[in-house]
Every structure is written in C-alpha cells, then in structure tokens.
C-alpha cells in the first residue's frame, strides 16, 4: 500500500493511504484534541475539536482528512485555536458543571480537551446558561443516561449501529432540544437495547454511566466464564469483590467487546445464593457434602443407566474442548449417541 510522508507540527510522519491525519498523529503520539472520534468507529466530524491547519488548504477537521504526501499539518495556530476554543466553550456552556459529583470526573474527554485547548473565562461566563434540566433515563437495570451531561458526539449511536447492529438509539428532536433516545423518545428499557453496555464504555463524558459506580482497586485480566466464546475481560476488584467488568481490548478473540452477561453479570460471584459446595438430597432435604462424596454418587447413578437409557445435554457455557470431552464420555463411556447441546434448542 502506498505510504504518504507528511509533517505534523514539524514531526515527520509516514502513514499508509487512507489514514486520517488524526489517526496518523495518534499513532505518532501527537495529541490532537477530539471528542467524537474513536478508532473503532467511522468518523463523523461533529465536535470540531480536531480542527487543524493544513498548509494550502486552511482549516480542516483531522478526523476526516486523509493524509497526503508532502502535507504540512499544524495542530496549533491562531485560526485553529479560534474555531476550536469557541466551539469548546459552546459545548461547556451547554454542559453540566458539577464535575465533582460526576462518575467520569478525571476520566472525562471533555475535561482533557478543555485542559488542552483552554477557555476564555469571561466569554464562557457570558454564554453559560442554566439550562432546563432534562430527566434522566434510569430505565436500564445496568446503566443510567443523563442528557444534561451528554455532548451529542453520537458515539453511542454509532456504536449501537456500526458495532452491535442493534440501532436501539438515535438522535431525536432538533436544535438544542436534540437528545439521544430510543425511537419515539421512549426510555431505553422499552427499546430493542440488549444492554451490552458498549455505548457506556465508549461514552467520553459522564452521560452514560454504569449503575454500579464502585471504583476497582485492581484489575484482573481473565476470560469470561459465561459461555464458550471466551471473551477477554478485565475484572475490577475491590475488597475481594468484583465491582466491574470491562472488555479486554488486547484479547484477539473479542477485541474489547462484551455482551450484557459478561459486562454486567458478575454479581453472581459474590451472591450469597451461589452454591459453593455440592448438595445431596437426603430425606427430602439438600445436605452440603464434599466433592468426593458427590462425584461418587454421580458415578453410582450413571452406572445404573448405561446405554440408550442415558442422554446428555451439553452446555454453551462450556468451551469447545469441554464439550468434546462431554460427547466422548457419552459415546465411549456411557455407550450411547444420545448427545445434544443447549444451543440447538
């Protein structure tokens, strides 16, 4: 593929054909402020924060501008800061200012951009408004949506469309009344939302936040145990308890994605209702027993039902390898072909 050589802020950068200026800068470690761009989504150019100056072309938005040979890009100039700063101030002017109580505080893209770009405080004060509080959508059991913190970058909408192909949410209304909502402004629980939470992890601000807001003290890299897909995940642990689950972007199988079970279904681990020892029914009551005793009982009962009086239904929670062992056991040990899988039901 053709490689283009350009300079960004005087730094020589090479990037293959089709790369955007923003991506080329990101790979080189040059920060261009941005809010609506994500490497795993198609660029839309709505936040205007990534405006740069290209010699001979003037101001362009770097998330949509492909690299060209000999291109001279400046991420800072009088023109750039003028457009960027006023647009940022407009965004802040229309955004909640209660950072201290926001779950995304210190981990917020708007804060990062604001620190980088800076604001003209007197001007910001003049355009700042108390805006009409809009009701939160807390209908989803796993996450909340706060339209007062939403910057309408559209990342959630694009995630739902491009990555999940669910399209549960979209823009609704016009002008400053614009809102991200389900069809007909219905709450999220009434849409076809699958609660995968991909939008929540991608939300650059505190508009979409998990209901469980406990911060983990350490992250443990592991594999999701819910099904045989084997998605990579980072479990957040605090006081010996799982308090969060995040997709592992380094996992080659799942590339950071999780479903509703993997992302929000971790509470069973610490549930008091969870079985931790085998139970055997004696005189109509379940009595906790040791593993050896339980397995002996199973072996004994199995032995009584060898051949076609026996059947196995394997589980999607097992891996391919485990399922292989199950069918081998059924055919060879139990002597029957009566084997099926829950995914077929």
């Amino acid at each position: 593929m053709r490689v283009h050589d350009l300079t960004i802020d005087g730094v020589a950068v090479s990037a293959p054909e089709g790369t955007t200026v923003l991506d080329a800068a990101r790979k080189k470690g040059i920060y261009i402020p941005h809010l609506c761009d994500r490497p795993d989504l198609k660029p839309v150019g709505v936040c205007r924060m990534c405006t740069v100056e290209v010699e001979g072309k003037g101001l362009v938005i770097s998330c949509k501008t492909p690299v060209r040979d000999g291109m001279v890009v400046r991420t800072e100039s009088e023109g750039v800061s003028k457009v960027r700063q006023v647009a940022l101030e407009l965004l802040i002017a229309d955004h909640d200012s209660d950072c201290l109580t926001c779950a995304k505080d210190t981990n917020c893209s708007l804060q990062r951009v604001a620190r980088h770009v800076g604001v003209d405080s007197p001007r910001l004060a003049r355009i700042r408004r108390e805006r009409d509080r809009r009701p939160l959508d807390t209908s989803n059991p796993f996450f909340d949506f706060d339209p007062n913190r939403c910057i309408l970058c559209g990342i959630c909408v694009r995630t739902c469309d491009e990555l999940q192909n669910i399209n549960a949410i979209d823009y609704t209304f016009r002008g400053t009344k614009t809102l991200i909502a389900g069809f007909g402004n219905r709450p999220r629980i009434e849409t076809n939302c699958e609660s995968c939470g991909e939008c929540v992890v991608r939300c650059p601000v505190g508009a979409l936040v998990p209901k469980d807001s406990r911060q983990p003290s350490k992250l443990v890299r592991t594999i999701c145990s819910f099904c045989g897909c084997g998605c990579g995940m980072l479990l957040g642990v605090r006081d010996g308890e799982i308090v969060s689950a995040a997709g592992d972007f380094k996992n080659p199988a799942s590339r950071g994605r999780l479903c509703v079970k993997g992302r929000y279904g971790y509470r069973y681990v610490n549930s008091p209702e969870r079985l931790t020892t085998p139970l055997v029914k004696r005189d109509g009551e379940f009595i906790p027993v040791g593993w050896d005793e339980a397995l002996d009982l199973v072996a004994e009962k199995f032995s009584e039902s060898m051949g076609d009086s026996f059947a196995t239904i394997a589980s999607a929670k097992c891996t391919n390898e485990e399922n292989y062992v199950v069918q081998k056991f059924t055919r060879v040990v139990m002597g029957t072909n009566n084997i099926d899988h829950c995914a077929r039901l």
């Binding site: 407009l90 965004l91 016009r174 002008g175 614009t178």
Partner: peptide
C-alpha cells in the same frame, strides 16, 4: 435556523441559540 439545526455539530447547535 436555531430551531431547524439538526443538532449534529456543536457550533450550529449551541452557537445559534446563544
């Protein structure tokens, strides 16, 4: 124009109202 802004980009959505 502010009422008819589609709400997609910041300058038009917020700027026209201001």
């Amino acid at each position: 124009t502010q009422a008819e802004s589609c709400g997609k980009c910041v300058p038009c959505r917020v700027g026209t109202v201001r």
